[in-house]
Structures are given as structure tokens and as C-alpha cells.
Design a protein around this nucleic acid. Sequence first.
DNA 1: TCTGGGGTCCTAGGACCC
DNA 2: TCTGGGGTCCTAGGACCC
Length: 420
Amino acid sequence: MTRPIALVDCNNFYASCERVFQPTLRGKPVVVLSNNDGCVIARSNEAKELGIEMGAPWHLNREKFSGAGVIVKSSNYTLYGDMSARVMKTLLSFSPVLEIYSIDEAFLGLEGFEDRLEDHARTLRATVLQWTGIPVSVGIAPTKTLAKVANRLAKKDSASCGVRVLMAAADQERALAQLELSDLWGVARRLSGRLKAQGVVTPLALRNADPQQIRQTLGVVGERLVRELRGESCIEIEEIAPNRKSLIASRSFGRPVETLIEMQEAVATYASRAAEKMRRQNLATANLIVFVETNPFRTQDRQYRASQSAQLPIATADTGRLVAAALGALVAIWREGYRYKKAGVMLLDLAPANALQGSLFAAPDSPASQARMRALDVINRRYGRGALIIGAAGVKSAWRLRREHVSKSYTTSWSELLTV
DNA sequence: TCTGGGGTCCTAGGACCC
DNA sequence: TCTGGGGTCCTAGGACCC
């Protein structure tokens, strides 16, 4: 009754993309660098073998690897996004049940292929390579967490030729015995530390632990992890991507920013870029955060980091309003005398820009509708007349409108509330 | 003047992912 | 001088509501 789940992961994705368009890079060590050519974000196998670490700051490594013939590329996200779309489209021809998990990973539901999982995966692998030029690895198991494990082994173990199936309990146990706790999906430094402190030292021990007991110390996340390791699927494949809830536009500065005017330029740019992103997805918001920080790697400098949120009276995607709100928030956290390294604008509580129309027809007992009715009730009691609340940001902002605006600011100006 | 319970919201921070 | 840029989920405590 267990349905097989495949995790398809592109090998060294950004480096592989560069190779597709520049075949002379094949067989050579290639690294792709982050913005400002700051640090390593992708490495070909050859580069990994040279000992180049993920995230390594390039200015500390340039010397070291210049003699090794390493080819360095600046990142090109437009290209990677395009290649990703081609890979995902190809995957769709191998199963209609597809969840795009990240730019280079996807989960596939393989129900119906139980009797030929390995063959199916090998054909998939060959086809993706032929159609897109991107090599992928495939891990198959009854849960997403185990599919991640299978995928890791498919990559690591050259004998498996890029495909690993872990449907049988005995195979799963053998696989878990080969890994470290921090190799597991969802376990990083902190969690593995806490587990080890509890005497759970290996992935296999975690699989054999009591879920209830793990829940005591690690909460629901821990319990889910144990169950997933046992083959009990707790994390479903999400074929329809839920609406984005927030988005960020931020950058590190190439050199320290020390004046307000420069910081204002940067924040205005980020706010405007964030607004563009939002409009492209037909979203709107009434809630944003501006943040600034100094360079934490320069321990000799005085450190400062701060963030400030700002609320707009109604949800909007208008660049002018968002820039104005962001600059207002910046003033509240700006401190003279620091060498700023990074700043950004986050947009929160994103909701479809046409939510107002939707809300009129929302089910009467939906939470959003109830919140709106309560807000309406307050207005009716207070002012003896009805008004339509702009609920574009859903329940939360309906509450906010009620608390912060309806009862305080909007004593007469209904037309403003009604503006879309 | 004293006494309760159940539920949601808000916010900040932690932890993790790619 | 030089160390990325995005995201999500969970928790905990206080505020607030009925």
C-alpha cells in the first residue's frame, strides 16, 4: 500500500548548466560564484575533488586554486531558471504527479510503476540528459525523507549509476547505517547536536527511536522525521504550489555603505524590485519589513543589525507607495557611524491582488469571511453604517484593519477603505 | 470583589532548506 | 577590498476576545 516517491535532483546544477552552453568545460573543474563573485555556490565533480568547499569565499581561495585550472563563472540565474523549466517539463512525461521542490529538484509520484521502478528511473535519467544536457540522480522510496536518502546514495555510490531504489525495509536500514545524522533532510547542526545529546547518534538509531519520546524533545518536526524514516509517509507530494507568502529583494554591497543617502538609494531600489516581482505574480501586500546589517565577518568593526516593519492602509502593489513606506521604515533604524554590508526589503502577507473580488463571494463560514464579518460588525456598531473591508491580505490584515485603522484612523473616510 | 476556560492573533526568534 | 539570495515552518509567551 506504500506508494513510491522519486526525488530527482540535478547534479551540480549551475555548473552543469554552464557546461551545456560551453561544452569545452566538460571534464574540467568548474565553479559558479554568487553575486559580487562573493562565494562558491556550485562546483563540478572535478572542483569538488580539488577540495573546493561549498560556500567558500572566493577571495580567500583564488590564489590557492588559480594554478589548478579551475574555471570560474559568475552566476546567471536567468539561464538556470530556463534550464530548470526544460528539465521539469521533461519530468512531466514520466509521471503526471510532479512537485517542483526547488530550481534543481522535483518529487515524482510513481504509483503504477511499482514493478519496474528501476527501469523507469533509468529511462528518465537518460531522457533528461538527452533532451536537456543536464545529468540527474534519482532516489526512490516510500517517503520523501527516504527518497532524499536514496538520492544521496545514488549520487555518492558510483556503482548505482545515478539510480537508487529503497522500497524494502532491509535496504532502508542498510542505507541509513551508511549516513550521518546531518545527512538527513531537515537535520542540520543544531538538531543533530540535540539528538546526540539524547543518545541518538546515527540515522538508524533515530529510525528505531520512540516517536513519542522524540516528540517530547524535538516537537512535531522530530516525530514526523522518525515516522518518515520508518517508511510512514507524513509529507505529501504537493502538485499545486501554494501561493507565495513573502518575498525578499536584498543584496550585499560590493563596498561598505556609510551614508544615509546611499542607503536610501539602495532601499528604494530593493523596494521597487520587490514591487515588480509582486506584480509579476499578481500579488499585493500591506505589510513590509526593511532590514540593514553590518558585515558580521569583519569582527574588528562595530556590529549593528536592525529591522523595521511598516503597514500600509490598504494592500497594494504600487511601487511609489511601497518605496515611500520602505524609506519611512529605514529612517527608524538608520544609525550613523556604521559600515553597512547589506540591506533588503521583505514583503509579507502576500495575497492575490484581486482578493477583494474574491472575498465578496467567499464561503460565509470561511475564516476570512468570519474575520471580515466581525470587523464589519465593529464598524456597524460604532458608526451605524456598513462598509466593505479591504481583505486583500486575508484574515490577518482584516484583523489589523480592525485594530489599527478602522477603530483609530478611519472615522469618516470610507472611500479610502473602498479604494482598490 | 472575586472567579475560568478556550480560542485566535501577534511578534520575535530559531531552525532548516536550496 | 573581498564571505549569496532567496524561502518555509515551528515555537513560545503575551494580548485579546467571547
